[in-house]
Computed example of a mutant assay.
Amino acid sequence: MVNTRAQRLRTPRSTARPLLQLVESPPTWELGRDHGLGLHEAGLGNLDAAAALGQDPFKSQVRLWMEKTGRRDLLHPVRLDNDSSAYWSRLLEPIVAAHYTLRTGRKVRCVNTTWRHPEHPWMSATVVREVVGSSEVQLLECLSVGMQMAPLWALGVPEYIRLRVLHQLAVTGAQAADVVVLLGGQDLQVYRIERHEFEIARLIRQERAFWRHVEHDQAPSPLDGDG
């Protein structure tokens, strides 16, 4: 009988899904999708990737571990109101996506679908937008960044964003993703992040090490304070 949260997390779940094969046919692209699954709390999603590796400037490993082990009530809540940067970023995403199409000529569709890794069930990824009919790039990540955060993009895609996208590529099997970011409301930049098997293997290895802390209900060593 499973009693503790740590035991429930260690309990294997059926993941009899075929490995993803990327072709231009929509039916094959549908393989591996999990519609309507509440995986954000039960596993590591793309938004968790950087924090799991201690590379997120806004969230520490310890805070992520507390969230994943049901200790949210011990954390200071993160407010999301109409004045937050995350709110405005979400609000502007459709506009950023539209201008990506104008600049590149590539069609985009909104899918809002959660995927589960076919071999590592604790890994999930939410894909909001896909690039349609392109053999070069399959996923699109849209961001809007205010002036205060724009310096993080001075040298290109920040590491914490790159890790999020790499996690998406690992889970979905996609070959590449475009990151389009609106900086300060006026500077639109487009970056390509391509699949790299060595980096993906390292990412999975490091995320698995963090997930073991969740499974065993043992806090990781703090890297950046309490986040």
Rank of each mutant, 00 (worst) to 15 (best):
V2E: 04
T4S: 12
T4C: 02
T11P: 01
S14F: 13
R17G: 06
P18H: 08
L20R: 10
V23A: 14
S25G: 12
P26Q: 01
R33M: 10
D34G: 03
D34K: 10
L37H: 04
L37T: 13
L39W: 03
H40W: 15
H40E: 12
G45E: 05
L47I: 08
L47D: 14
A49Q: 04
A50I: 11
D56Q: 06
P57Y: 04
F58M: 13
V62S: 01
R63H: 15
R63S: 13
R63I: 15
K68R: 06
R71H: 11
R71D: 11
R71E: 09
R72M: 11
L74Y: 12
L74G: 11
R79N: 07
R79H: 09
L80F: 07
D81A: 14
D81V: 15
A86P: 04
Y87R: 05
W88S: 03
L91G: 05
L92H: 15
P94Y: 09
A98W: 04
H99K: 08
Y100R: 00
L102Q: 12
L102G: 07
R106I: 03
K107W: 07
R109G: 13
V111I: 14
W115A: 12
R116Y: 00
E119D: 10
H120Q: 06
P121K: 06
S124I: 06
S124K: 03
T126V: 13
V127P: 00
V127S: 03
V127Q: 01
V128A: 12
R129T: 12
E130W: 04
V132S: 10
V132H: 04
G133L: 07
L140W: 02
E141T: 09
E141K: 08
E141R: 02
L143D: 00
L143E: 00
V145Y: 00
G146Y: 11
W153L: 14
L155R: 13
G156P: 15
V157D: 03
P158T: 14
Y160T: 02
R162Q: 10
V165C: 01
H167P: 11
H167R: 14
H167W: 04
A170K: 01
V171T: 07
V171C: 04
G173M: 07
A177G: 06
D178P: 07
V179R: 00
V180Y: 02
L182S: 14
L183R: 08
L183D: 08
G185Q: 15
Q186N: 11
D187G: 07
D187C: 06
L188A: 08
V190F: 02
V190R: 06
Y191M: 14
R192F: 05
R192H: 15
R192A: 14
I193M: 02
E194M: 10
E194Y: 13
R195D: 06
E197V: 10
F198G: 13
L203Y: 02
L203I: 15
I204G: 02
R205K: 04
R208Y: 15
H213V: 12
E215I: 08
H216E: 11
D217T: 15
Q218L: 09
A219Y: 01
A219Q: 04
P222R: 10
D224P: 05
G227N: 13
